[in-house]
């Protein structure tokens, strides 16, 4: 399976913030959170189209989200964006360096196409609860 290496930058989206106010468990919140915005070229490399699911993996964890074509007007291969959420946080390392602030905005990850469904919030909760 083809993979592409990316640096993920998390961001805030007002529609997602609105959905968060309404409830972390709402479908709306998941639809607006479980996303990764990819460069057109990167999408081609992993043979994925807008709206299909992808698996995103880091040393810290793994998550299945929907791939979206980035609306940036410049190409940005190797750079991807995700709304800040429990989905993006599956990927963030627990190594917080000297600052003790996690690396929320420079996440090194591998993205590949998948047939799996987007992770639900309950699945994320189960993973957090599970013993390690």
């Amino acid at each position: 399976m083809a993979k592409v290496e990316v640096t993920i930058v998390t961001y805030r989206d007002i529609f997602q913030e609105e959905a968060k106010e309404i409830g972390r468990y709402s479908d709306e919140y998941r639809d607006l959170s479980a996303l990764i915005l990819l460069d057109r070229g990167d999408m081609k490399l992993i043979k994925t189209e807008d709206g299909q699911t992808v698996q995103v993996e880091t040393d810290g964890g793994m998550v299945v989200v929907t791939a979206r074509l980035s609306e940036e007007d410049e190409e940005h291969p190797g750079l991807a964006f995700m709304p800040n959420s429990p989905w993006s946080n599956q990927l963030v390392s627990e190594d917080t360096g000297t600052s003790k602030i996690p690396e929320f905005k420079r996440i090194k990850a591998e993205v590949s196409a998948t047939d799996k469904d987007v992770d639900t919030i309950s699945e994320l909760v189960e993973r957090i609860r599970a013993d390690y």
Binding site: L91, V92, I128
Partner: peptide, 24 residues
Amino acid sequence: ALPAAISKKLARIPTVAIDPHRNL
């Protein structure tokens, strides 16, 4: 809000949560 790896540790600590809403 925190990385899942840190949240895993949090999940094992006896917690009191005060909030208007249900959340993780």
